[in-house]
Computed example of a mutant assay.
Amino acid sequence: MSTPPTSDVDLFADDVVLDPYPVFTGLREQGPVVHLPRNDVYALTRYDVVRDSLADWESFSSASIAFNPMANEALTGTSLASDPPVHTQLRATLTENLSPGHCAASRGRSPRRPTPSSPISSRRARSRRSTRSPAPSRWRWSPT
């Protein structure tokens, strides 16, 4: 395995924060993985490398994802900063509780019934109005 290139870029420098895209382009040109000693991290600069690293949790742990120990400690035990099997259990719980059916049921509605303000229900109301027969004569104003 070859040693990745190194860059002296500081990701938190004011000019980089204000316009990071030229720096990102430069890092991508250096290679798929670039060591950033000023931030003590390795930057993964290409989609396929990021995708592969996310799938390989045994080599690339999510347990320490922040740039400082306090933030990592605060994230401990969350789905964002955990690896399987803990991550799998947390994600299953979130997925179940945040599914459309569960959210609708917790509000006392059927999962498929649109809300009165939803675009679907508004379209239905408009289409019903356009196909209805005119209002009965007793509802129309007429001079007497």
Rank of each mutant, 00 (worst) to 15 (best):
Leu44Thr: 05
Val17Ile: 13
Asp40Tyr: 05
Phe24Lys: 01
Arg38His: 12
Ser64Asn: 15
Arg132Met: 14
Val17Asn: 02
Thr131Val: 08
Ala66Leu: 07
Ser2His: 08
Thr45Lys: 01
Leu27Ser: 01
His102Pro: 00
Thr95Trp: 03
Ala105Ser: 11
Glu73Cys: 02
Pro84Asp: 13
Arg113Pro: 00
Arg51Ala: 11
Asn97Pro: 00
Asp19Thr: 08
Leu98Cys: 13
Thr76Trp: 03
Ser7His: 04
Ser118Thr: 06
Ser99Thr: 07
Arg140Gln: 11
Gln30Pro: 02
Trp141Ala: 01
Asp40Gln: 14
Ala74Gly: 06
Ser121Met: 14
Arg113Tyr: 04
Pro4Arg: 04
Cys103Leu: 09
Arg126Glu: 14
Gly26Asn: 06
Thr45Cys: 11
Asp19Met: 06
Ala105Arg: 13
Ala66Cys: 11
Glu96Val: 05
Thr76Glu: 15
Pro84Leu: 12
Asp15Cys: 04
Arg112Met: 10
Asn39Asp: 13
Pro69Ser: 14
Arg91Ser: 06
Ser82Asp: 09
Leu11Thr: 04
Gly77Lys: 05
Phe24His: 07
Phe12Leu: 10
Val34Lys: 00
Ser137Asn: 05
Leu98Ile: 09
Phe24Asp: 01
Val86Thr: 11
Pro136Phe: 07
Leu98Asp: 06
Thr88Met: 05
Ala104Val: 02
Tyr42Lys: 03
Pro85Leu: 15
Gly101Leu: 02
Pro32Gln: 10
Ala92His: 08
Asp48Ser: 10
Arg123Tyr: 08
Arg51Ile: 06
Ser59Tyr: 05
Thr78Val: 07
Glu29Phe: 00
His102Arg: 12
Pro69Phe: 07
Ser53Arg: 10
Leu90Lys: 09
Asn39Thr: 03
Cys103Glu: 04
Ser122Tyr: 00
Ser118Leu: 05
Ser130Ile: 07
Gly31Asp: 09
Val17Leu: 11
Leu54His: 10
Arg107Phe: 01
Pro119Ser: 08
Val23Thr: 15
Gly77Met: 09
Ser64Pro: 00
Val17Gly: 02
Thr95Leu: 09
Phe60Asn: 05
Thr131Gly: 02
Arg28Leu: 02
Leu80Glu: 06
Ile65Trp: 10
Arg126Asp: 13
Arg132Asp: 13
His35Ser: 01
Gln30Phe: 00
His102Trp: 06
Ser142Phe: 07
Pro22Tyr: 03
Arg140Tyr: 00
Ser118Pro: 02
Ala81Thr: 07
Thr131Glu: 09
Arg112Val: 12
Thr95Arg: 13
Ser118Asn: 04
Leu44Phe: 14
Ser127Phe: 12
Arg113Asp: 12
Asp56Ser: 13
Thr131Cys: 04
His102Leu: 02
Arg109Gln: 05
Pro143Trp: 04
Ala55Asp: 13
Leu11His: 00
Arg128Tyr: 12
Gly31Met: 05
Leu98Asn: 10
Pro84Cys: 12
Gly108Met: 10
Pro84Glu: 14
Val86His: 10
Pro4Tyr: 03
Phe67Pro: 01
Cys103Val: 13
Ala104His: 03
Arg112Ile: 11
Ala81Trp: 09
Tyr47Gly: 07
Arg123Met: 14
Pro116Gln: 11
Asn97Thr: 09
Ala135Cys: 02
Ser61Asp: 11
